[in-house]
């Protein structure tokens, strides 16, 4: 299913966010993308690029200052009353970066999984809730008998992140926003955690926004990738095109700097890294996003690099 053949489930149009202060900070400018069911979009950028701000706006933790958000074709830019926000949140769920901070240390795993069920599905009986809790636990590869009565401190980082995903899935969302879900975990289990998202996309048709600083994992999980710098998307398109044939200087710089096996320092990539400051400067320019191929958009900038 190509993105054009289905209507997006969640869409941003020229989303903007300015933090007002004694010096205004434009955290997001002109951010437009679409999420489709059964597919993932990776939002790749460095710290401070605006990617987490984007997640916070989409999960209604803060309002945007500009642009539109459409959910199922309906304008949901202004969060409505509590009931509407709750309804939206049962559709759009979030998995946070820090598996340690996202769970309440005073509550068991059972509480973390049954609480959202009680909140969002008040009609369930006790028995049904218990069954669903066990089912959720199994879905993320945790044995209910062994895990449900444990407290967060008894779990490893990876297990905690599994509980976080189960908690997010408890309310049957259609959109999952994962903000750096593996960056605080050991390298050896990162792929295992990412592997859990794949069946959710495939079997349940979840639309996913995968926020990361690690463009190599984007290839692993996301069909589309958007590279964000200074609050602007500088390039967006199919992940394989972005990685194999990047057009924007910042995307190329990012790819040149990504640690990769068998590409020792001082090789051809070093040239662009030496010009990093110049690349950063031109990547902040408010150029126009131009479509260079179907579905592949690149922001125009004033200089080119060899």
């Amino acid at each position: 299913m190509s993105p054009s053949s289905s209507s997006p489930i969640l869409e941003t149009r020229k989303l903007g966010m300015v933090f007002r202060g004694h010096r205004d900070v434009a955290a997001l400018t002109d951010v437009s993308f679409q999420l489709h069911r059964g597919r993932a979009l990776a939002l790749v950028g460095e710290s401070g690029s605006g990617k987490s701000t984007c997640a916070k706006i989409l999960t209604r933790m803060m309002p945007s200052t500009d642009g539109q958000i459409l959910f199922n074709g309906e304008d949901v830019t202004r969060p409505g009353n509590r009931k509407e926000v709750l309804a939206y949140r049962s559709q759009v769920q979030m998995v946070f970066q820090d598996p340690f901070a996202a769970l309440n240390p005073a509550h068991s795993v059972r509480h973390h999984l049954s609480r959202p069920l009680a909140l969002h599905k008040p009609n369930l009986g006790y028995g049904e809730r218990e069954d669903l809790t066990a089912e959720l636990s199994l879905m993320v590869g945790l044995d209910p008998a062994e895990t449900l009565d444990k407290y967060p401190y008894e779990l490893s980082g990876g297990q905690r992140q599994r509980v976080n995903l189960a908690r997010a899935m408890a309310v049957d969302p259609v959109v999952l926003i994962a903000d750096e879900p593996t960056s605080m975990l050991d390298v050896s289990i990162r792929l295992n955690i990412l592997d859990m998202f794949k069946p959710l996309k495939r079997d349940r048709g979840i639309a996913m926004l995968y926020i990361t600083h690690d463009i190599a994992t984007a290839r692993y999980i996301a069909e589309e990738t958007a590279v964000i710098y200074g609050g602007r998307i500088v390039e967006i398109g199919p992940t394989s095109t972005i990685i194999d044939a990047p057009r924007h200087p910042y995307t190329r710089l990012l790819l040149a700097a990504v640690p990769e096996i068998g590409r020792p320092f001082g090789s051809a990539d070093a040239g662009l890294v030496r010009e990093a400051d110049r690349v950063r400067a031109i990547s902040r320019e408010p150029g126009r996003l131009a479509e260079v191929a179907p579905g592949h958009l690149v922001r125009e900038c004033s200089a080119s690099f060899a």
Partner: peptide, 14 residues
């Protein structure tokens, strides 16, 4: 650090 900054720094250390 971000990957670009990481690379710049380690190139310099080298």
């Amino acid at each position: 650090l971000d990957v670009v900054v990481q690379r710049e720094l380690l190139e310099e250390v080298t």
